[in-house]
Design a protein around this nucleic acid. Structure first.
Length: 326
DNA sequence: GCTCAGATGAGTGCTCCGTC
DNA sequence: GACGGAGCACTCATCTGAGC
Protein backbone atom coordinates (compact mmCIF):
# COMPACT_ATOMS: atom_id res chain seq x y z
CA UNK A 1 0.00 0.00 0.00
CA UNK A 2 1.35 3.42 -0.94
CA UNK A 3 1.62 5.99 1.75
CA UNK A 4 -0.80 8.87 1.50
CA UNK A 5 0.68 12.09 0.13
CA UNK A 6 1.24 14.68 2.85
CA UNK A 7 0.46 18.32 2.23
CA UNK A 8 2.93 20.24 4.37
CA UNK A 9 0.76 23.33 4.33
CA UNK A 10 -2.27 21.60 5.75
CA UNK A 11 -0.74 19.05 8.18
CA UNK A 12 0.62 20.00 11.61
CA UNK A 13 4.43 20.06 11.96
CA UNK A 14 5.78 16.82 13.42
CA UNK A 15 7.05 17.21 16.99
CA UNK A 16 10.79 17.87 17.31
CA UNK A 17 12.67 14.80 18.43
CA UNK A 18 13.95 15.10 21.96
CA UNK A 19 17.72 15.54 22.40
CA UNK A 20 18.42 16.33 18.75
CA UNK A 21 21.32 18.64 19.58
CA UNK A 22 24.50 17.46 17.90
CA UNK A 23 26.68 18.77 20.77
CA UNK A 24 28.34 15.59 22.07
CA UNK A 25 28.40 15.27 25.84
CA UNK A 26 32.16 15.17 26.13
CA UNK A 27 32.12 15.46 29.92
CA UNK A 28 29.90 12.42 30.36
CA UNK A 29 32.13 10.48 27.97
CA UNK A 30 35.26 11.35 29.98
CA UNK A 31 33.61 10.50 33.30
CA UNK A 32 32.59 7.07 31.97
CA UNK A 33 35.94 6.39 30.26
CA UNK A 34 37.59 3.21 31.55
CA UNK A 35 41.31 3.05 30.64
CA UNK A 36 42.94 -0.37 30.40
CA UNK A 37 46.16 1.03 31.86
CA UNK A 38 47.66 4.36 32.85
CA UNK A 39 51.36 5.27 33.04
CA UNK A 40 52.86 8.43 34.53
CA UNK A 41 56.57 9.14 34.07
CA UNK A 42 59.24 11.67 33.13
CA UNK A 43 59.69 11.13 29.40
CA UNK A 44 62.64 13.38 28.61
CA UNK A 45 64.73 16.13 30.09
CA UNK A 46 67.53 18.57 29.36
CA UNK A 47 70.28 19.02 31.93
CA UNK A 48 73.22 21.44 32.14
CA UNK A 49 76.61 20.38 33.53
CA UNK A 50 79.52 22.54 34.63
CA UNK A 51 81.76 19.48 34.86
CA UNK A 52 81.80 17.61 31.53
CA UNK A 53 80.75 13.98 31.36
CA UNK A 54 83.61 11.54 30.76
CA UNK A 55 83.40 9.02 27.90
CA UNK A 56 82.67 6.26 30.45
CA UNK A 57 79.89 8.31 32.02
CA UNK A 58 78.32 9.01 28.60
CA UNK A 59 78.46 5.31 27.75
CA UNK A 60 76.87 4.36 31.09
CA UNK A 61 74.03 6.85 30.55
CA UNK A 62 73.54 5.83 26.91
CA UNK A 63 73.18 2.20 28.05
CA UNK A 64 70.37 3.23 30.40
CA UNK A 65 68.43 5.67 28.19
CA UNK A 66 66.39 5.36 25.01
CA UNK A 67 68.49 8.19 23.59
CA UNK A 68 71.21 10.52 24.79
CA UNK A 69 72.43 13.72 23.10
CA UNK A 70 75.37 15.68 24.44
CA UNK A 71 76.16 19.19 23.17
CA UNK A 72 79.09 21.31 24.31
CA UNK A 73 79.03 25.04 24.94
CA UNK A 74 79.85 26.84 21.69
CA UNK A 75 78.87 23.90 19.48
CA UNK A 76 76.74 24.60 16.38
CA UNK A 77 73.35 22.91 16.70
CA UNK A 78 70.11 22.80 14.72
CA UNK A 79 67.18 24.36 16.62
CA UNK A 80 63.46 23.47 16.41
CA UNK A 81 62.93 25.70 13.35
CA UNK A 82 65.76 23.95 11.49
CA UNK A 83 68.12 26.92 11.69
CA UNK A 84 71.70 26.46 12.90
CA UNK A 85 72.82 28.39 15.98
CA UNK A 86 75.75 28.32 18.35
CA UNK A 87 74.88 26.81 21.73
CA UNK A 88 75.56 29.28 24.53
CA UNK A 89 75.04 27.82 27.97
CA UNK A 90 77.68 29.73 29.92
CA UNK A 91 78.67 29.19 32.73
CA UNK A 92 77.82 25.53 31.99
CA UNK A 93 79.96 23.33 29.74
CA UNK A 94 77.58 20.65 28.47
CA UNK A 95 73.91 20.27 27.72
CA UNK A 96 72.59 16.70 27.89
CA UNK A 97 69.23 15.64 26.47
CA UNK A 98 67.93 12.37 27.92
CA UNK A 99 64.94 10.48 26.57
CA UNK A 100 63.52 7.48 28.38
CA UNK A 101 66.09 7.41 31.16
CA UNK A 102 65.65 4.48 33.52
CA UNK A 103 66.14 4.50 37.29
CA UNK A 104 69.81 3.44 36.98
CA UNK A 105 70.61 6.51 34.83
CA UNK A 106 68.68 8.87 37.10
CA UNK A 107 70.23 7.50 40.28
CA UNK A 108 73.68 7.91 38.75
CA UNK A 109 72.94 11.54 37.80
CA UNK A 110 71.44 12.22 41.24
CA UNK A 111 74.65 11.05 42.90
CA UNK A 112 76.93 13.03 40.58
CA UNK A 113 78.58 16.16 42.02
CA UNK A 114 78.86 18.98 39.46
CA UNK A 115 81.52 20.95 41.35
CA UNK A 116 84.69 21.44 39.31
CA UNK A 117 87.87 20.17 41.10
CA UNK A 118 90.60 22.73 41.76
CA UNK A 119 94.12 22.45 40.32
CA UNK A 120 95.21 20.07 43.09
CA UNK A 121 92.19 17.80 42.41
CA UNK A 122 90.37 18.81 45.62
CA UNK A 123 86.71 19.87 45.41
CA UNK A 124 85.75 23.44 46.37
CA UNK A 125 84.53 23.78 49.98
CA UNK A 126 81.03 25.03 49.07
CA UNK A 127 78.07 22.61 49.19
CA UNK A 128 77.66 19.75 46.77
CA UNK A 129 76.21 21.03 43.49
CA UNK A 130 73.73 18.99 41.41
CA UNK A 131 73.44 19.51 37.64
CA UNK A 132 70.73 21.97 36.54
CA UNK A 133 67.50 20.69 34.95
CA UNK A 134 66.28 23.28 32.43
CA UNK A 135 63.60 21.26 30.60
CA UNK A 136 61.37 18.35 31.55
CA UNK A 137 58.54 16.43 29.90
CA UNK A 138 56.14 14.79 32.34
CA UNK A 139 53.96 12.30 30.53
CA UNK A 140 50.66 10.54 31.08
CA UNK A 141 49.79 7.57 28.84
CA UNK A 142 46.16 6.45 28.93
CA UNK A 143 45.74 3.06 27.24
CA UNK A 144 42.27 2.50 25.79
CA UNK A 145 40.40 -0.48 24.42
CA UNK A 146 40.30 0.36 20.70
CA UNK A 147 40.87 3.07 18.11
CA UNK A 148 37.31 4.37 18.10
CA UNK A 149 37.27 4.95 21.87
CA UNK A 150 40.74 6.49 21.57
CA UNK A 151 39.58 9.01 18.94
CA UNK A 152 36.43 9.91 20.89
CA UNK A 153 38.44 10.27 24.10
CA UNK A 154 40.95 12.59 22.42
CA UNK A 155 38.17 14.72 20.93
CA UNK A 156 36.52 14.98 24.37
CA UNK A 157 39.89 15.75 25.95
CA UNK A 158 40.61 18.54 23.46
CA UNK A 159 37.17 19.99 24.11
CA UNK A 160 37.35 19.93 27.92
CA UNK A 161 41.03 20.42 28.77
CA UNK A 162 41.86 23.71 30.46
CA UNK A 163 45.40 24.91 31.14
CA UNK A 164 45.43 27.17 34.15
CA UNK A 165 47.39 30.41 33.84
CA UNK A 166 47.33 30.05 30.06
CA UNK A 167 46.56 33.73 29.47
CA UNK A 168 46.02 34.53 25.82
CA UNK A 169 48.27 31.73 24.54
CA UNK A 170 46.56 30.19 21.53
CA UNK A 171 46.18 26.43 21.23
CA UNK A 172 47.92 24.78 18.27
CA UNK A 173 46.60 21.83 16.30
CA UNK A 174 49.16 19.74 14.42
CA UNK A 175 48.84 17.95 11.07
CA UNK A 176 48.78 14.56 12.84
CA UNK A 177 45.75 15.66 14.90
CA UNK A 178 47.83 16.39 17.99
CA UNK A 179 47.33 19.50 20.06
CA UNK A 180 49.36 21.87 22.18
CA UNK A 181 48.37 24.74 24.44
CA UNK A 182 51.07 26.89 22.85
CA UNK A 183 54.86 26.92 23.02
CA UNK A 184 56.54 29.29 25.40
CA UNK A 185 60.13 29.92 26.39
CA UNK A 186 59.48 29.97 30.13
CA UNK A 187 56.75 28.12 31.95
CA UNK A 188 54.61 25.09 31.14
CA UNK A 189 52.56 23.99 28.19
CA UNK A 190 50.77 20.79 27.36
CA UNK A 191 50.91 18.60 24.27
CA UNK A 192 48.70 15.66 23.48
CA UNK A 193 48.45 13.21 20.61
CA UNK A 194 47.18 9.76 19.69
CA UNK A 195 49.30 9.16 16.60
CA UNK A 196 52.17 7.30 18.32
CA UNK A 197 52.31 4.20 20.52
CA UNK A 198 53.06 4.47 24.21
CA UNK A 199 56.82 4.91 24.78
CA UNK A 200 56.45 2.69 27.86
CA UNK A 201 54.84 -0.45 26.41
CA UNK A 202 54.39 0.18 22.69
CA UNK A 203 50.61 -0.18 22.94
CA UNK A 204 49.05 1.67 19.99
CA UNK A 205 45.67 2.80 21.40
CA UNK A 206 47.37 5.32 23.61
CA UNK A 207 46.30 8.84 24.50
CA UNK A 208 49.67 10.44 25.23
CA UNK A 209 49.59 13.69 27.18
CA UNK A 210 52.70 15.50 28.30
CA UNK A 211 53.45 18.67 30.19
CA UNK A 212 56.56 20.37 28.84
CA UNK A 213 58.23 22.42 31.52
CA UNK A 214 60.60 24.99 30.06
CA UNK A 215 63.28 26.82 32.08
CA UNK A 216 65.00 26.04 35.35
CA UNK A 217 62.59 28.31 37.19
CA UNK A 218 59.51 26.47 35.90
CA UNK A 219 61.05 23.07 36.73
CA UNK A 220 61.82 24.27 40.28
CA UNK A 221 58.28 25.63 40.57
CA UNK A 222 56.81 22.12 40.23
CA UNK A 223 59.06 20.94 43.06
CA UNK A 224 62.05 19.50 41.14
CA UNK A 225 65.29 21.26 42.01
CA UNK A 226 67.52 18.26 41.23
CA UNK A 227 67.53 14.73 39.78
CA UNK A 228 67.09 13.42 43.34
CA UNK A 229 63.81 15.36 43.57
CA UNK A 230 62.73 13.77 40.28
CA UNK A 231 63.34 10.28 41.64
CA UNK A 232 61.06 11.01 44.60
CA UNK A 233 58.55 13.03 42.56
CA UNK A 234 54.84 12.40 43.12
CA UNK A 235 53.61 12.16 39.52
CA UNK A 236 50.06 11.43 40.60
CA UNK A 237 49.86 14.62 42.64
CA UNK A 238 51.31 16.55 39.69
CA UNK A 239 48.64 15.31 37.30
CA UNK A 240 45.93 15.71 39.92
CA UNK A 241 46.81 19.39 39.98
CA UNK A 242 47.60 20.01 36.31
CA UNK A 243 45.14 17.80 34.43
CA UNK A 244 42.17 20.15 34.57
CA UNK A 245 39.09 19.07 32.59
CA UNK A 246 36.04 21.30 32.69
CA UNK A 247 32.55 21.26 31.29
CA UNK A 248 30.29 24.22 30.61
CA UNK A 249 26.78 24.35 32.04
CA UNK A 250 25.11 26.10 29.10
CA UNK A 251 22.01 27.27 31.03
CA UNK A 252 24.19 28.48 33.88
CA UNK A 253 26.37 30.39 31.39
CA UNK A 254 23.24 32.09 30.04
CA UNK A 255 22.01 33.01 33.52
CA UNK A 256 25.44 34.34 34.49
CA UNK A 257 25.47 36.54 31.39
CA UNK A 258 21.90 37.81 31.91
CA UNK A 259 22.63 38.53 35.58
CA UNK A 260 25.71 40.51 34.61
CA UNK A 261 23.90 42.41 31.87
CA UNK A 262 20.91 43.43 34.02
CA UNK A 263 22.72 43.70 37.36
CA UNK A 264 20.65 40.87 38.92
CA UNK A 265 21.52 37.96 41.19
CA UNK A 266 18.82 35.61 39.97
CA UNK A 267 19.39 32.04 41.15
CA UNK A 268 16.35 30.22 39.76
CA UNK A 269 16.44 29.03 36.13
CA UNK A 270 14.87 31.36 33.56
CA UNK A 271 13.28 30.71 30.13
CA UNK A 272 16.08 32.49 28.21
CA UNK A 273 19.06 31.01 30.10
CA UNK A 274 19.70 28.05 27.80
CA UNK A 275 19.23 30.00 24.56
CA UNK A 276 21.52 32.79 25.76
CA UNK A 277 24.11 30.25 26.90
CA UNK A 278 24.06 28.51 23.51
CA UNK A 279 24.59 31.82 21.71
CA UNK A 280 27.54 32.68 23.97
CA UNK A 281 29.04 29.18 23.62
CA UNK A 282 28.94 29.45 19.82
CA UNK A 283 30.21 33.03 19.86
CA UNK A 284 33.16 32.58 22.20
CA UNK A 285 34.19 28.91 22.34
CA UNK A 286 35.74 28.46 18.89
CA UNK A 287 39.51 28.21 18.96
CA UNK A 288 41.95 29.14 16.19
CA UNK A 289 41.54 25.76 14.46
CA UNK A 290 37.74 26.07 14.39
CA UNK A 291 36.98 23.60 17.18
CA UNK A 292 34.65 24.31 20.10
CA UNK A 293 36.50 24.05 23.40
CA UNK A 294 36.25 25.24 26.98
CA UNK A 295 39.75 26.80 26.91
CA UNK A 296 38.70 29.14 24.09
CA UNK A 297 35.55 30.11 26.01
CA UNK A 298 37.65 31.03 29.05
CA UNK A 299 40.09 33.03 26.93
CA UNK A 300 37.42 34.85 24.92
CA UNK A 301 34.61 35.23 27.47
CA UNK A 302 36.15 34.54 30.89
CA UNK A 303 35.64 32.00 33.62
CA UNK A 304 32.79 31.82 36.08
CA UNK A 305 30.43 29.60 38.05
CA UNK A 306 29.19 27.99 34.81
CA UNK A 307 32.41 25.93 34.63
CA UNK A 308 32.18 22.51 36.25
CA UNK A 309 35.20 20.35 37.09
CA UNK A 310 35.24 16.88 35.52
CA UNK A 311 36.65 14.22 37.90
CA UNK A 312 39.94 12.75 36.65
CA UNK A 313 40.94 10.36 39.46
CA UNK A 314 40.13 7.33 37.27
CA UNK A 315 42.75 8.53 34.72
CA UNK A 316 45.51 8.33 37.29
CA UNK A 317 47.25 5.32 38.80
CA UNK A 318 46.77 4.80 42.51
CA UNK A 319 49.41 6.29 44.77
CA UNK A 320 52.77 4.52 44.69
CA UNK A 321 52.56 3.41 41.07
CA UNK A 322 54.83 6.12 39.75
CA UNK A 323 56.99 4.87 36.94
CA UNK A 324 59.89 6.05 34.88
CA UNK A 325 60.45 4.79 31.37
CA UNK A 326 62.71 1.79 31.49
C1' DG B 1 22.32 27.82 50.20
C1' DC B 2 23.79 30.06 46.16
C1' DT B 3 25.97 33.92 43.75
C1' DC B 4 28.92 37.70 42.98
C1' DA B 5 32.66 41.01 43.65
C1' DG B 6 36.80 42.27 45.87
C1' DA B 7 41.13 40.61 48.09
C1' DT B 8 44.90 37.62 47.92
C1' DG B 9 48.58 34.97 46.27
C1' DA B 10 50.65 31.93 42.81
C1' DG B 11 52.17 31.75 38.16
C1' DT B 12 53.77 34.05 34.08
C1' DG B 13 55.79 37.52 30.80
C1' DC B 14 58.89 41.16 30.16
C1' DT B 15 63.16 43.10 30.75
C1' DC B 16 67.74 43.58 32.24
C1' DC B 17 72.16 41.55 33.69
C1' DG B 18 76.35 38.86 33.21
C1' DT B 19 79.01 36.24 30.25
C1' DC B 20 80.90 34.28 26.02
C1' DG C 1 73.50 37.98 19.36
C1' DA C 2 72.62 34.14 22.29
C1' DC C 3 71.74 32.00 26.60
C1' DG C 4 69.94 31.30 31.49
C1' DG C 5 69.05 33.70 35.89
C1' DA C 6 66.61 36.95 38.51
C1' DG C 7 63.66 40.98 39.71
C1' DC C 8 59.50 43.28 38.95
C1' DA C 9 54.90 43.96 37.41
C1' DC C 10 50.96 42.02 35.66
C1' DT C 11 47.38 38.32 35.05
C1' DC C 12 44.32 35.10 36.60
C1' DA C 13 42.47 31.31 39.74
C1' DT C 14 40.96 30.79 44.25
C1' DC C 15 39.31 32.33 48.65
C1' DT C 16 36.28 35.03 51.54
C1' DG C 17 32.54 37.72 52.98
C1' DA C 18 28.36 40.20 51.88
C1' DG C 19 24.09 40.22 49.27
C1' DC C 20 20.11 37.84 47.39
Amino acid sequence: MRAAAVNPASSPRPPRPVGRSTRPDAAAFLVALAPLDVYVYAHSGRILFKRSLTTEEQQHLADNCQSLDVHRHGQWIKDASGAFRQLNIFPFKEQVQLVGANRVALEYLASRDDRIPKGDGALPKRDRQPPLIIYLEIALDIILANEQILREAFAAFKRCFVQLWNGKNEAIEFDNGGMSTGRRWNGKYLSGYISKPSPVTGEVDCLHIEYRICSARAVRAVGIASIADLLAFDFRAFWQKHLVLRDVDIARLGRHSLNKRFGKRRQEPGPDDRRTGQVLWRAYAYDKSGSLCVQALIQNYGSGPFLKNIPIAHFLPSSGENALVS
